[in-house]
Design a protein around this nucleic acid. Structure first.
Lengths: 217, 217
DNA sequence: CCTACCGATCGGTAGG
DNA sequence: CCTACCGATCGGTAGG
């Protein structure tokens, strides 16, 4: 970094562009996030194309034109929802993998931790962001798809060491890359049928998945 | 063709209602099916709500209003696509189960036959009907959903005897109803990533799935 | 973030 | 199945 000479023209303490409202920022974030939340909920229930920006505005308690103060377009709103969904999932899984105990666990228990976390994020109460992310890919433009694909690749990469290890020990009887696709498919499909009010709990679900996919060591 | 008496008020040679075109009837079916095919393809690629009836008409070589000569509404067109998809899947699976050899196979091989057939119908070339059926449920009205659910229940019921048998023999380590959901999820998700032009064949896929889900007897 | 509005598009229909 | 069309709705914007 170059050392600058003294007595330069005055540098403004605040950047010139969009003001950093120290007081209103939280409020701004609230309104913006209210839109994201409403959009996620509606996109999940009705799909992106069938949801109008008016629906979203109304659900967030705004007038029909107001979402466009926060988001450049309906497209941008969708991408923001999906990015938040993927970001949440990635953060949770990273935290699991980074925990010191994680590497002390046998592979099958590491996989159990990943599966349980995946279910938590996917099926946990009030999380519509991840389901939207899973089912609205085709509504993104190709730049957005590429951008999201990077996050997805990171997420998937966290599964590979465990799966490879299980394959090598003979506890997983399918090539790890294919196993990853099949396993995540089985888990993701639960969005279609899981009902927290009845049937299996996430614990039961996780147990069933692990004991079905993994052979005893 | 009736012999007409002389000098009566002229009687049209064709009946008054919708003409039974003995010659053109096949053509009618063709046009209707061309619409179904075009609709399936577009619904799959862009989703139901993002597809316009004009898109469909154009893809079938018609003018914008013409789809409504064959289908009462866009909704009805979607339902027809999904019903055809589910009907195809059901017919194929029924044929497998009804084959005399089927009951002579060990359970794991019966499951293999079901999985392979499922993949064939789901991922086979030129079949957009089943993928649409899997991903557009929320676009149907509740009467249509109920109607389709009956077909789906029949399809799923064909899997249960095999799964129960495998559970009892200890080759399947999850409750059969839950196993059914997880297995079909793993298979259905392949719609999202399977590419016939690269990667695994349907045989490889089937092998991987069976050896992953099922323990040796 | 609201008011007022626009151009474009969409599902569907009448009449042939 | 086409022509010509309608009413409704939609994403988005200008100006405050």
């Amino acid at each position: 970094m170059p050392d600058q000479a003294i007595s330069l023209p005055e540098i403004p303490k605040r950047p010139r562009g969009r003001p950093r409202k120290t007081v209103d920022e939280r409020d701004d974030g609230n309104r913006r996030h209210a839109l994201l939340q409403a959009a996620a909920k509606l996109f999940r229930r009705k799909g992106f194309a069938a949801t109008t920006t008016r629906d979203i505005a109304a659900a967030a308690g705004m007038q029909s034109g107001s979402p466009f103060y926060h988001f450049k377009s309906k497209d941008a709103l969708l991408y923001a929802v999906m990015e938040e969904g993927m970001g949440t999932a990635l953060n949770f899984l990273r935290a699991v993998v980074a925990a010191p105990e994680y590497n002390t666990l046998p592979s099958s228990e590491r996989l159990r931790a990943l599966v349980r976390t995946h279910f938590d994020v996917l099926l946990g109460p009030g999380n519509d962001f991840v389901p939207v992310m899973l089912y609205e890919n085709r509504s993104l433009n190709s730049r957005q798809q590429k951008s999201l694909a990077k996050l997805i690749a990171q997420y998937e990469s966290l599964w590979m060491p465990v799966l490879v290890s299980l394959e090598q020990s003979g506890q997983l009887r399918a090539p790890a890359p294919l196993a990853r696709l099949l396993i995540l498919g089985a888990l993701n499909w639960a969005v279609q049928w899981f009902d927290p009010k009845k049937g299996a709990s996430l614990d039961t679900l996780t147990d069933a998945a692990i004991s079905m996919f993994i052979k005893e060591s």
